[in-house]
């Protein structure tokens, strides 16, 4: 898919060659959004070596994702150490739109990721070769990094069932 603005190609170059956090306009909300590249998921898994964690994929354009972000924001608020990896499948060029939404669900303070390579098929594949790209999409990793996937809105009950840690 050709992503928004076509500058995404340039933006992927920005991630390769430039600072990890491009300077944004004055009105930009503070965020902790990192670029998600082809190697990022491997690095995230290494960061959680021997530990369980949850991955939640969302996009600015996905209405049902807001329900999940709302729940995740509340869970994170109740337990700041909750091992949560939130990845937006939008181009990182849309970081301000994403930051607005994350802020609304009290997730702006967390480190989260946005797709930072216009070849999105490769990024999706790096997360899960069996994922068709539908959103919201969640992954539940146990300490041995056995993975369970779920598509669609999760209730907190279902979430706890899939992630009893």
């Amino acid at each position: 898919m050709i992503n928004k603005r076509f500058f995404s190609v340039l933006l992927s170059a920005a991630v390769l060659f430039g600072p990890a956090h491009p300077a944004v306009s004055d009105a930009a909300p503070a965020d902790n959004i990192q670029g998600f590249g082809p190697q990022t998921f491997t690095a995230i898994k290494a960061q959680f070596a021997g530990k369980p964690f949850v991955v939640s994929l969302w996009s600015v354009d996905c209405a049902p994702c807001r329900v999940e972000l709302d729940m995740l924001g509340q869970m994170k608020k109740a337990d700041p150490d909750f091992p949560l990896v939130v990845i937006s499948t939008d181009s990182i060029e849309m970081r301000e739109d994403a930051a607005d939404i994350l802020d609304e669900y009290q997730l702006a303070g967390e480190t989260t990721w946005m797709f930072a390579d216009s070849f999105v098929e490769r990024l999706r594949f790096s997360i899960d070769p069996g994922w068709y790209g539908e959103l919201p999409r969640s992954y539940f990793y146990d300490a041995e990094h056995n993975m369970m996937a779920h598509s669609g809105i999760l209730t907190e009950e279902k979430f706890r069932e899939l992630f009893p840690y």
Binding site: F7, F17, P22, A23, V24, S25, E96
Partner: peptide
């Protein structure tokens, strides 16, 4: 929103 300055450098 304006393009980030760094984009022009990258261009």
């Amino acid at each position: 929103r304006p393009l980030p300055d760094c984009l022009n450098a990258v261009r």
